[in-house]
């Protein structure tokens, strides 16, 4: 029964990773870049919600709705100031620029909020603690279910958006051939900015869940980035549906790994990620002949 419970908890955890990874997947899908500050933006979103909770005493979920527009604006600004310029400069530049940005965000958060750990759990109401004991070894938490539901709605909604709406087609067209998209009247800069804004918004949602599920501090970002990237790679880069499944696979690997040894949880996820990379890009042969 413990293994069934571990898998179930893994699915809930994985749904959280999928939400975190969603924006990373969107930006890679549309612009072929990985934003190394993605995790830090999620944490920044959590702090934005945290500040509103502190100031107003509102529930974390309501505070999130207020902070969301700010994060969307931030996404636009990020695209127009940093990413747009880096896109034109080759494949390494976006990585270098966003890595620098990641350090900036982490340390600005340190300055603003001290290195103390924070949580949104206390301000999210009963959803944090409510759960149903199905059998003695199997419990379903309300929060886990909520995150899973939101993840499914988010990915389903995005899928519909991309396949049914003209704005979605414009995004796919730009992703497939930005030059040709411009020639049929699509403003690729606007599409990119929209994609980044969407990515930052979903990162903020990931940050909200991070804050409710557990705790965060100014340097939580890199870990979130690694988990999000692992989810994207496990699910297959460039596929949104894959990212949802990849996140869940990562979550299950971690909770099942924790059954073997508590310290093995994160390791199991890393190993799954590396195994997927080896299988996908495998066939490497060591040539012992000198170069």
């Amino acid at each position: 029964m413990t293994i069934v419970n571990a898998v179930l908890q893994g699915i809930f955890l994985g749904a959280f990773y999928a939400v975190l990874a969603c924006g990373l997947s969107i930006m890679f899908g549309v612009m072929r870049i990985i934003n190394l500050a993605h995790g830090d933006l999620a944490v920044l979103g959590a702090y934005a919600t945290f500040v509103i909770v502190e100031q107003t005493g509102a529930s974390a979920l309501i505070a999130f709705v207020v902070s969301l527009p700010l994060m969307i604006v931030l996404g636009y600004v990020l695209q127009l100031t940093v990413l747009e310029r880096s896109l034109k400069a080759g494949i390494l530049t976006p990585l270098l620029a966003t890595f620098g940005l990641s350090i900036v965000v982490q340390n600005l958060l340190q300055l603003a909020f001290s290195p103390d750990v924070r949580s949104l759990g206390g301000s999210a109401g009963t959803i944090t603690t409510a759960s149903w004991q199905v059998t003695s070894g199997l419990s379903v938490s309300a929060l886990g279910l909520l995150v899973l539901l939101v993840a499914v709605l988010l990915f389903g909604g995005l899928q519909l958006f991309l396949s049914r709406t003209r704005v979605g087609w414009m995004m796919r067209a730009t992703a497939e051939d930005a030059d040709a998209a411009e020639l049929v009247g699509i403003d690729s800069r606007a599409v990119y900015a929209r994609a980044t804004a969407l990515a930052v918004a979903t990162a903020a949602l990931g940050g909200l869940f991070l804050g409710i599920r557990s705790v965060f501090d100014p340097v939580s970002g890199p870990t979130q980035l690694i988990f999000a990237f692992e989810a994207v790679v496990i699910g297959g880069m460039g596929s949104l549906r894959g990212t949802l499944l990849g996140g869940i696979a990562l979550g299950v690997a971690q909770t099942v790994g924790a059954q073997i040894h508590p310290q093995f949880a994160v390791m199991a996820g890393h190993l799954l990620f590396l195994a997927v990379l080896i299988v996908r890009f495998g066939g490497a042969r060591l040539r012992l002949r000198p170069v």
Partner: peptide, 27 residues
Amino acid sequence: PAHERVARGIALVPEGRRLFPSLTVEE
């Protein structure tokens, strides 16, 4: 920029066709 010229009334059928492969004909 190119997309604004389209709005002004210039359209190019590029060499090599350059369709969006995953979009349907209608899309």
